[in-house]
Every structure is written in structure tokens, then in C-alpha cells.
Amino acid sequence: MVIVLIVLFAATLVYFFLSERVSNFIWLLSVQGVILFGIAFNNLLHIQPLGLILILLETLIVKAIVIPWFLNQLRHKNELKRVHESKVPVFYSLIIISAILIGSFLLSYTIDNEIIQLRFFTVALATVIGGMYFIVIHKNIFSHLVGFLIIENGTFLLSLAVGGEMPFLVSLAVLLDVLIAVLVIGVFLNKVRDSFDTILVSKLNKLKD
């Protein structure tokens, strides 16, 4: 079951690069949250209830509901364009994301390691690289935030490979930290939009010497 969800997770990654609509980005992030919930639920049933509740909270409530809702608020408040075009044509992005997926599979294939859970590692790696690529090809800071969240989801996927064994307090701290970081970034996005009247990153160039 877990492997099916992981493949689905990888499929959402492909769709991130296919779509250019802001609403699709938000929707896909929510879907990723639900898939992560499924993986976590399947993978971590054996750990103590407190940790389980925390991880379910993190995926289902925070990743699937709170953050997408927050992004939607941001989007409406700042009257963002419905479509965010990327610098690189979608066509090439799709080729590149396929190459990233294949590359990380091949990398995992060459690794012979019994301790790490390779299937998590593979897709997590592809997601993190994909997220960075997402940030690189997009021109506005809202999409950059989306890219950051993709990276976060990738690291979370990998953390599920060990997450069950992390101390409760530590996981709680990580959860709060990430949530606060996203909220603060969102607040700053609002401020940038208010002061610069745009969210295009190319307009953020007052610092150049």
C-alpha cells in the first residue's frame, strides 16, 4: 500500500510542473498532504499513540488543510494572477522532472544499503530536487513559497522513514518550526506585495550594487 502512495506522490510532482494555475498548486499541495497522511498512517501504526496523533496532525491538519487554506487566503488577499508562468516552458520542465525521477531511481538502484528505506529516499530526493527546480524556474515569490513547501514535503517523506523513532518533543518542535516559518514567510509575502506592488522576483532588485 505504501509503495502505491509513494508512486502517487511522485505523480503529483509531475503535475506540479504541468500546471501553471495557482489554484492547482494549492490543490496539489493539499493532495500531497493527504498522501503523506496515508503513508504515515500505514507506516507508523506501531508507534505509541501520542507520536501517531502528532504525525497525523502534521499531515492531515497542517499540510492538507491549514497551509493550503493559508495559501488561498494569501492568494485572494494579494489578488494574484490565476496563472503563473515559469521561465522555462512547461514542455522542458516535464522532460527535466522525468529525468530527475529516473535519475533518483537509478541512484537508489546503485546504492546498496540495508538501513535506509530506499523507496522513501528515492522519491524524497526527487521531490527535494524538483522543489528546488520549481523555485528556480518560477518568477514570483508566491510560487517560490510553493516550491519551498514541496521541498518540505520531500523532507517530511524522508522523515517518515525514521520519524517513528524521533523523540516526541523533537518532532513537535520541528512541526511548530515549519508551521511558523511558513506563516512568517506568508506574512512577509503580504508585506512585499504591499510595498513593491508586485510579487515578481525580478522587481526585488533594489539591493543590487
Binding site: 508512486v7 511522485a10 503535475y15 516552458p89 512547461v90 531511481f105 537508489s108 538502484y109
Partner: peptide, 26 residues
Amino acid sequence: QWILSLSALAILGFLSVLIITGKIIL
């Protein structure tokens, strides 16, 4: 790009098959 996404999904399926058949052991 829309048509290409089908190929990207097909690649995912292909990689999954590699996992099932044990050609790639994860």
C-alpha cells in the same frame, strides 16, 4: 506539454514495474 505529461506518467508506471519485477530492488 500536456501530451508529454502522459509520457512522464508512463515513466512512473515503468519505474513501478521495475520495482514489482525486482529489476530495481528497493
